[in-house]
Design a binder for these strands. Sequence first.
DNA 1: TATATTTAAGACAAACTTGTCCCAAAATAA
DNA 2: TTATTTTGGGACAAGTTTGTCTTAAATATA
Lengths: 145, 145
Amino acid sequence: MKVLSKASVYGLRALLYIVSKKDKSEYVSIREMSEELSISFHFLTKILQSLTQRGLLESYRGPNGGIALKLPAEEIFLIDVVKILEGENFFDSCLLGLPGCGEFEPCPVHDFWKVTKAALQDEFATTSLAELGTKISENRLRLSG
Amino acid sequence: MKVLSKASVYGLRALLYIVSKKDKSEYVSIREMSEELSISFHFLTKILQSLTQRGLLESYRGPNGGIALKLPAEEIFLIDVVKILEGENFFDSCLLGLPGCGEFEPCPVHDFWKVTKAALQDEFATTSLAELGTKISENRLRLSG
DNA sequence: TATATTTAAGACAAACTTGTCCCAAAATAA
DNA sequence: TTATTTTGGGACAAGTTTGTCTTAAATATA
């Protein structure tokens, strides 16, 4: 079951890498992240570019440059990242792909999918990068295979 | 959010079309389904072929031929269809794509994704084609855009 | 038998996602 | 200024999913 595209997965892993670093005062280079997370450097660059363009990240060129969060990690939620990388309508999908599926014209599985979607959306909307960063540090969780 | 491939979506819609037909005694032609559901005929043919090869459907060639369920609709569950068309490991996915993610080596979002996956799997495992067929008939639900 | 109908099966093409490569632009440091 | 480092951005290639086309095989009917 592939819920998120590679772009979202890589983007999230990179942001989690940033927030789980000890030193929060420096830019993190994309090269470092791509190597630590085993992600294609150029692909990751483009993903992070999108996040920078949309104001979620700040980038800085040149030696010791890199990427940094533009907001405190407490104020960035998974849903912010996913909506940028997957599209604003990410949580509006119909499981059977019927256009206009909703309360008025539901598909046969709308009732239960609606509930699942809402639960997922809520989880994404309330889970911050800070929360996961703490979790990663405390439990020494990995971010790559 | 694309949880199911087109193959699964089309396969499910076709099966729901079959079970929501009044006359259950005849084969339903793929051509009819492809037209009623606005699905490419050849693509649908291949999808249903997979289901036939895996014993979920029965096919019959020649005039008045077509496709029929090989089991009563009460005994076919969404999970049966999806596991054939998406793969047996469909419900084992890690949201962040980390290999071996599980209780021993969880990814940072494993705890909540585990719950969501289980709820989805349960819903797929307990929803039968018969149940949805009844729902479709009673509420005149559509199966195509 | 001959013809029409329908699924089976494979080759192929189009579209989308993912990944690679190259060079430009910005910043640092010597 | 010059060289080096790093992101920006576009072209392009590879891979996967989705869709199309052609022919074969099975069945029914006349």
